[in-house]
Structure formats: structure tokens, C-alpha cells
Amino acid sequence: MAEALVSLAVLLAGLAFLLALWRFLAGPTAADRVVAFDVMTVIGISFIVILALLEGRGIYLDAALVYALLSFLGVIAVARYLERGY
């Protein structure tokens, strides 16, 4: 039962990733793409957690930890570029 639900979760996360990817490819401005990029990183964290569950290895969570703490740096770097911060 739980297995089937987790598989369904993978499919839903993949669908969300696909929607965000569509926004990334469609644009229209760079800022829209940055939003889509941010969303995809967070979906990536979910992917990593689900993978850890599927494989049964808790050590995979460390990668999710790194993304959770560092993914906003990329967004801030782009945002500061857009507003001419450096």
C-alpha cells in the first residue's frame, strides 16, 4: 500500500517538474525562468527524499540537506545580477 502511494508521489513530483520545466522553456523573461528554476530545485529535494525512501538509505538525505541550504544562493545571485547589484 505504502509502496503504491510512494510510486504515485514520484509520478506527481515528475508532473510538477514537467510543468515547471515548461515555464522555464517558455519564459518569457529571465526572472520567470529563475522562478521556475527555484521551483525545480525544491522539487529536486522531494525527489531526493523519495529516492532515499525507495533505496532505504538514510545517507542520501545529506544531498537534500545541501540543496535545502544552498539552493537559494543561485536565485539570489541571479536576482542581484538582474537588479545590477554587482
Partner: peptide
């Protein structure tokens, strides 16, 4: 197979 890290799972 799984990752080359030994712990309680491997």
C-alpha cells in the same frame, strides 16, 4: 546494488 558506504543498511 547500492552506494559504497557501509552503515546499518549495508
Amino acid at each position: 546494488r547500492t552506494a559504497p558506504i557501509l552503515d546499518s543498511a549495508v
